[in-house]
Design a protein around this nucleic acid. Structure first.
Lengths: 141, 141
DNA sequence: CTACGAGTTAAAGTGCGCTTTAAGTCAAGC
DNA sequence: GCTTGACTTAAAGCGCACTTTAACTCGTAG
């Protein structure tokens, strides 16, 4: 009884059909059966997509999500795989929180600036940090 | 006395030369004088670049940074322009903090999962949220 | 003279998570 | 038969902040 078209599934889950096809190509979804070349889905696809949405909202990349849903050892229970990914992700989140905190402080510090021109600002900042001229690694954003 | 080549400046500030050229093209830096087609910089460039680094660390995009250093009215003091940008950026940062908090909760919730297979997981998630089938807007990441 | 290192440019590439486009295939309705 | 609408594919595009590449121009050292 796989009866839904990709468009119907997309509407139910609030996704674009192209996103669903993309997930399939990326190995996050099983290949559905076809009726005259068109994908037909059963109800189980909804939970499957919901799971992907949760993983994505938790901050997992497509690659990480793939190791979660199609991961290394199919015998390993989901919770174990989740924990493996979650621990790493937690570390990243803590780092991002720290970064955001630094950004807030930096934003606030600008409120105390008394310079009348950008040139003054630059001069003061230049004097304020007599950083040793040692080459730092380029920052790959 | 503009005496430094782009390579020297880059080493001092820990940037790639290509980044400095990029900033110049983007209107974040004044065009330096040239000696036989090569850029020559005075010491003031250091403060200028440091200022850009601070702005970038504060989370300002290239476009925002441009309105800050070369902004709308050159007569407006830097602190005023900074405040204008900073207030908007603060809102974004609060939103990101909230998002990170949601991610943490979601990550932790996975620790309680008892499913033995992804299919079970998907089924449970599917049942747990009988979301009304109203189309939501596509999420432009 | 030749080679080397550092600089120059415009244009293309990168990574991510999709979206958009172009060109085609179907089933159903008129 | 023809149109309509929803689907199909592969490939290209997007946004951002740069980096990389290819092909070139310099000044200096040997």
């Amino acid at each position: 009884m796989p009866s839904m078209s990709i468009g119907q599934v997309a509407r139910i889950c609030g996704l674009a059909p192209s996103a669903i096809r993309y997930y399939e190509r990326a190995g996050l979804l099983p290949k559905p059966i076809r009726v005259s070349r068109q994908r037909r889905y059963g109800n189980e696809i909804i939970g499957r997509l919901r799971l992907l949405q949760v993983a994505r909202e938790a901050g997992f990349s497509i690659a990480e999500t793939r190791t979660f849903v199609a991961g290394f050892s199919a015998a390993t229970p989901p919770a174990i795989r989740w924990r493996t990914l979650a621990r790493r992700k937690m570390t990243e989140i803590e780092a991002q929180l720290a970064q955001l905190h630094r950004m807030k402080l930096l934003l606030e510090s600008g409120f105390h600036c008394r310079c009348l021109s950008i040139e003054d600002c630059a001069r003061i900042i230049g004097e304020a940090s007599p950083d040793p001229p040692s080459a730092r690694s380029p920052r790959g954003r």
